[in-house]
Design a protein around this nucleic acid. Structure first.
Length: 732
RNA sequence: GGGCGAUUAGCUCAGUUGGCUAGAGCAGUUCGUUUACACCGAAAAGGUCAGGGGUUCGAGUCCCUUAUCGCCCACCA
């Protein structure tokens, strides 16, 4: 026996050696598995794309959680004989990365993006991202992730750039991408638009002002933002509201805080007559709802606030001041002119940009959009339930594949969330006024129509300066990583659609739905068959991990102290899909003990038996047959649960069997047999111990890949495969 | 305002289509053991499955309702 079993299992001593061995074997790559006859040539494919981590920082425990789950599934499928591919990659995370880089760079150099040429700034940000990428890849390896590194992708590399531009052109040609001046979520601080999903809500105290526009105006209106009222072009009331019937259709002109305002009284179903005074001042330029009303009634739009959050009209006290300041100035003006009816403190939700924390100022901007409600003739014939040429909208496609169960969402309740979200989906604003990202492939030249092209159409053409929303490129992830737009690429043909996606529920609208949109339109197929949703990790007290709470746990430190296998078990057992889980180091500790238990079980077996015992040809004793039958029943049950991705059950049952059946019962009674039994009983039992321990290693391998591989190296027989990772799952 | 989830042992959670005496890990109790393992073993303890009502031969599981906590969506101006 190897002396190393005389001391407790030391994860740190063996894990990196084991990982190197795997990596050098090349078997993370399914092609190598086939080449060496470890996977059958005609084996069914099984593929997962790694949700690409943002290159903004390091991996946290949440990533480790995802990695543990996906790697367990991948390792299982590989052992099960599938042609198994897990594609690694990272996300350039446009605005998040740019914001972070700019902040750190400013701290050091006192220079911002405005101090650099566009290309230089882009390159600097890219370098920053690349540096994080290499850290991230190192961390994934520490986790034991059996990703095929030969297929590493980045959402901003050349191949993905080509995919992005191809996608843009196809959608533009189908008239699903359009350019339009519309109200956007403008992040004043970040100086860019953000999509609806990147706007967070924060409760803030505000004042509800009730006032009249002028003495001549017949009734008061209410608003928390009187400064925007300089841009009102209508007052909307409910059509059935008797109080205002007589005014509908009238037009009033007056000067309001120095601005010439003309409002028309209109009737709109949207107005809630119960709320406030039941009359809504319509500001088409600075409110999403109001702009919709304006569109219905064909009202003009007057912009009041610019990109810097400053007033562009109004009297001298107001013009050029910040909107928040102007609010009070206008309120004072109302008081001074005896127009103010009442002021009431209320709590309201304010939109905040997710990445920069800046207040969102809705204002009109010329932007690029994806139209989710436009009908078009479906160009593919490969999607179940939708025929080629059938008239559909992107929204309908997104709903169809989920309702049709082509894409199944686990747990099922998230289908409701998904459906609800898609149903209310508005057009997707895909342009961003930042530098780090895919520059929009649209070119302009004086006197010519704009052109969509991957490269410059020729002399004198200037490219659109906006970049694409980062989710545009990650929406392509399931197929841009597999060779698309070359639809003849081997990987694309073999591995798409992928089998499984393992995202957190918070990313369902942002990413999962976008992948479905892109894939159903561009490829004519679903991006993945199953969405296996995970919950969020929380700390011991059930709080989110966050910087402000400083309760973060570095997975690498946990690994250093307890070993990757222990961490992986802790992130697997007791975790059900979609359910949040609180993380406690106690748990990791417990599974480190388990690793050591397995270590000592091995020590016992290696001490008492040798490879010769495995080929003992006598029959098993009656008791051993009983044990074997029981074990194969368990194996059958566990295999079924693995097929259903019930990792939390399998891992726990293996833990229990190993410790409390194999060690506590079988090993204990073996001692007596070895002392008092007859030769055939002893030989039977020795063969049995090796057989079961080997199978435990095999089945535990997806969860605890390192220690099981380490043990396998000492346990394997001449006719066994060299590397446990490539060994076949028990056949029944 | 709308939607969803959670509530099971001191703590963290399982409990698949309703079916033996409701399980696991950790913590705690008692005893034991140092030639596989003290990162150990054995034994016991611990639950009106949030409350109430209903369906059923049978409910932790299905339905209704109440309560508490949490999350998501929604620019009542």
């Amino acid at each position: 026996m190897n002396d190393k079993y005389l001391s407790p299992y030391d994860a740190s001593a063996s894990e990196s050696t084991i990982y190197d061995m795997w990596e050098q074997s090349g078997y993370f790559n399914p092609d190598a598995m086939i080449r060496d006859g470890l996977t059958k040539e005609d084996a069914a494919p099984f593929s997962i794309v790694l949700p690409p981590p943002n290159v903004t920082g390091q991996l946290h425990l949440g990533h480790a959680f995802e990695d543990a789950t996906q790697d367990a599934i991948i390792r299982y499928r590989r052992m099960k004989g599938f042609r198994t591919l897990w594609v690694p990659g990272t996300d350039h995370a446009a605005i998040a990365t740019q914001a972070k880089f700019e902040k750190e760079h400013y701290k050091k150099e006192k220079k911002s993006r405005h101090d650099y040429d566009r290309n230089d700034f882009f390159d600097m940000t890219l370098d920053f991202g690349r540096a994080h990428q290499s850290t991230i890849l190192g961390q994934l390896k520490k986790m034991g992730a059996s990703l095929d590194w030969s297929r590493l992708a980045f959402t901003l590399d050349e191949a993905r750039q080509h995919a992005v531009y191809t996608a843009f052109k196809k959608m533009y040609d189908a008239e699903l991408i359009y350019q339009k001046d519309r109200i956007v979520n403008w992040d004043v601080k970040g100086q860019t638009t953000v999509s609806d999903d990147e706007v967070l809500r924060e409760e803030r105290e505000a004042t509800m002002y009730t006032f009249k526009y002028s003495d001549d105006f017949p009734f008061p209106i209410a608003s928390t933002r009187p400064e925007t009222k300089l841009g009102d072009t209508a007052v909307a009331v409910h059509p059935d509201d008797t109080r205002y019937q007589q005014y509908i259709g009238n037009e009033y002109s007056f000067t309001f805080a120095g601005a010439d305002v003309t409002v028309k009284i209109i009737a709109d179903e949207h107005v809630d007559s119960e709320f406030g005074v039941g009359a809504l001042g319509v500001t088409p330029a600075h409110s999403m709802i109001d702009s919709e009303i304006a569109e219905r009634h064909d009202l003009p739009s007057v912009q009041v606030i610019n990109e810097y959050g400053k007033m562009i009209i109004g009297n001298d006290d107001i013009k050029n001041t910040k909107a928040a300041v102007a609010r009070e100035t206008v309120a004072q003006w109302l008081r001074d002119n005896n127009l103010m009816v009442s002021e009431e403190k209320i709590i309201q939700n304010v939109g905040i940009a997710e990445r920069t924390g800046g207040v969102i100022e809705p204002l009109p901007k010329l932007q690029w959009w994806i139209n989710v409600n436009k009908s078009f003739d479906y160009p593919h014939d490969s999607l179940t339930g939708i025929e080629k040429g059938q008239s559909v909208t992107l929204k309908e496609l997104m709903l169809h594949v989920v309702e049709n169960e082509e894409v199944s969402i686990v747990p099922e309740r998230f289908e409701k969330t998904y459906r609800h979200w898609i149903t209310n989906l508005r057009d997707w604003n895909i342009s961003r006024q930042i530098i780090f990202g895919h520059q929009i492939p649209v070119w302009y030249k004086d006197g010519e129509d704009m052109k969509v092209s991957e490269t410059s159409p020729g002399y004198g053409w200037v490219q659109d300066t906006d970049t694409l929303d980062t989710w545009f490129s990650s929406g392509l992830w399931s197929f841009s990583t597999l060779g698309w737009p070359n639809t003849e690429a081997e990987d694309f043909k073999t591995y798409h659609p992928t089998n499984l996606l393992n995202p957190g529920y918070e990313i369902l609208p942002l990413w999962v739905s976008r992948m479905i949109l892109m894939s159903t339109f561009l490829v004519g197929d679903i991006p993945f068959k199953e969405v296996h949703i995970h919950g969020m990790l929380r700390d011991k007290q059930g709080r989110k991990f966050s910087k402000s709470l400083n309760n973060g746990i570095d997975p690498l430190e946990v690994i250093e102290q307890y070993g990757t296998d222990a961490l992986r078990m802790a992130l697997t057992i007791g975790v059900t899909p979609g359910q949040d889980m609180s993380f406690d180091l106690q748990k990791v500790k417990a599974y480190r003990k388990f690793a050591n238990k397995l270590w000592n079980i091995t020590r016992f077996v290696l001490t008492e038996t040798d490879k010769q015992h495995e080929v003992y040809e006598g029959s098993f004793s009656k008791r051993d047959v009983e044990i074997l039958n029981h074990f194969s029943e368990r194996t059958k049950e566990l295999t079924k649960e693995m097929d259903e991705n019930k990792l939390y059950l399998v891992a726990e049952k293996l833990y229990h069997y190993t410790w409390h059946t194999f060690a506590d019962e079988i090993l204990e009674e073996s001692k007596a047999i070895f002392e008092n039994g007859n030769d055939s009983e002893i030989l039977s039992r020795k063969k049995l111990l090796r057989h079961i321990l080997k199978n435990i290693c095999i089945m535990l391998h997806p969860f605890m890949p390192f220690i099981t591989e380490e043990i396998w190296q000492d346990l394997k027989n001449n006719n066994d495969r060299d590397i446990l990772m490539t060994v076949s799952w028990p056949q029944l």
